[in-house]
Every structure is written in C-alpha cells, then in structure tokens.
Computed example of a mutant assay.
Amino acid sequence: MTKLTREAFSALRKGATVIEADPKGEKVLRLGDGSFLKLFRRKRILSSALLFPPARRFRNNVESLAARGIPCPQVTELYEFDSEGKTAVRYWPLPGDTVRGLLPGLPAAERGAMLLRLAAFIARLHDLGIYFRSLHFGNVILTPSGEFGLIDLSDMRAQRAPISRPKRIRNFRHFFRYKDDARFITELGTARFLAAYNDASRVRMEAAHLARMPNLNPAS
C-alpha cells in the first residue's frame, strides 16, 4: 500500500471530477486520466479497518470476481493517507451501462429478456459463492460485450462453496428494497423471474421465500 501525503494527494486529484461525496468529504473521484479513486474513512479509532483496510478488501473482492470470470473494475493502486485514518483504491472502471440506467429506455420485451438474464446471473453469483450485500440494478453493469459485471465492491464476501439458501434469501431482501427496481420485476412477473433463477441455480428457491420481500408482489 503506497503512502500518500497531502501534497501527493493534491497532485493526484488535480483536474479530478467529484463523482460521489457526503457531508464529511469526497468519496469517489474521476481522475484526469479517466481512472477512479475511491476513498475510505475509518469510522472508529478501534476498528477492524486497522487490520484489514477497506481498500485492500475492495482489491481482494475484485480478484475474487476476476478469478471466477465475472467482469469487474481493474485495480491499479492502493493508498494509505499519512495520519488521516484513510485509505484509497485507484482503479479503471468497468465499461458499460448500469441495468438501472438501461431498463427504463427499453421496450417491454427487451426489458423482460434482460431481467431474465439478470436472474440467471444472480444465480451464477450465488453458486460461485458470491454474497454481494449491495446487489442492486445500479451496481450491475451490462458491458459492451453483452456480459453482466459488478461494481462498487466494498460490501462483498466470497467463499468457495455456493452460498446457502438463507443467505440467498437475505441477499434478495437487500436486492428488492429498491422500490423503482422491484417494480420492473413485478411488471415482468415474480414467478418468471424466480423460474429463470431456478433454471440457472444449484439451490432452488420457492415462491414462499420471496413472499415477504419488500416492494415485491409475489403473486405476480
């Protein structure tokens, strides 16, 4: 992990565009060369981030996805800020468009086809041992080659075996908490989405498992 002084950071961010920020400061920058810089703040003085910085976790998650053949960003550098309790990861973004951005502009038939492909992609992730808590339409990219990939990978865990059914249910609960996303699946039909998932999955999900999902009409 490269040490980054305030002077070096100022030089690095020269000409950068702020992509994401909060009241405490910048979170994601697009640098002058087109690469991205994602910054992480340590929230507590005593934190697991001391032993396992989130920038390193991001890189490890990228490596886990790449090893499984899932398109994802390409990490180029990890940084540690001097005396500020912050780390950062620099990466090349994954080319393509988010599913969230694409769906509203598609005809109904194409929208439905994309959602069925997405269901199969989620099944593949689960079977590959990927539990991505921040799974939603805004974090799934359709690449120029027509593959689905993932971005914003801090909140992810990878294991060797397929994830369990309870974890899959929990992951879907996070997935359906976005009302505008869930309405597209209701429009398609929850049963069709579930059938596409099951056709691609090693662990079968039942309609009852989706019955209490937020923003979802399981009878559709």
Rank of each mutant, 00 (worst) to 15 (best):
H174F: 12
R6A: 12
R117W: 04
A8L: 09
R192F: 11
N198W: 08
V203Q: 13
K167F: 14
R165S: 09
K27Q: 12
S48K: 07
I130R: 03
S83Y: 15
L50Q: 06
L106N: 04
R56K: 09
P95N: 10
D97F: 06
H136I: 01
I122M: 13
P166G: 11
K38G: 02
A88W: 02
H136T: 00
N215C: 10
K179C: 14
E7W: 01
V75H: 09
N171Y: 09
L153P: 02
K167R: 14
P166A: 12
L103P: 07
A49I: 02
R160D: 14
R6P: 06
E84W: 14
D199H: 15
L46M: 06
A88H: 01
L31M: 09
R57N: 06
L153T: 05
L50I: 14
I122K: 00
R30M: 11
A55K: 03
P73K: 00
E20P: 00
G138H: 06
L39F: 03
V140Q: 02
L31C: 03
A158L: 12
A66W: 14
Y197E: 04
E147S: 14
R173I: 14
R183W: 12
L65S: 02
R124K: 15
A161V: 13
I122R: 06
Y178S: 12
F58S: 05
E77S: 14
I70V: 15
T87L: 02
R133V: 14
E26L: 08
R111L: 00
K179A: 15
S220M: 07
R90P: 01
T17G: 08
R173W: 15
G15D: 13
R30E: 10
A123I: 03
F175P: 01
L29A: 02
F172T: 06
H209C: 14
A191L: 14
G69A: 10
S48V: 07
G129R: 07
N139G: 05
R192H: 15
A21R: 15
R41I: 08
L50F: 07
R41S: 12
A119Y: 09
P73H: 04
E63W: 11
E7I: 08
P214V: 03
L31E: 08
S220T: 14
R42W: 04
D33V: 05
P71A: 09
R117Q: 04
S48W: 08
N139S: 02
R41Y: 11
N139P: 00
A119P: 05
L125P: 03
I185N: 04
E26I: 07
R44P: 01
H136F: 03
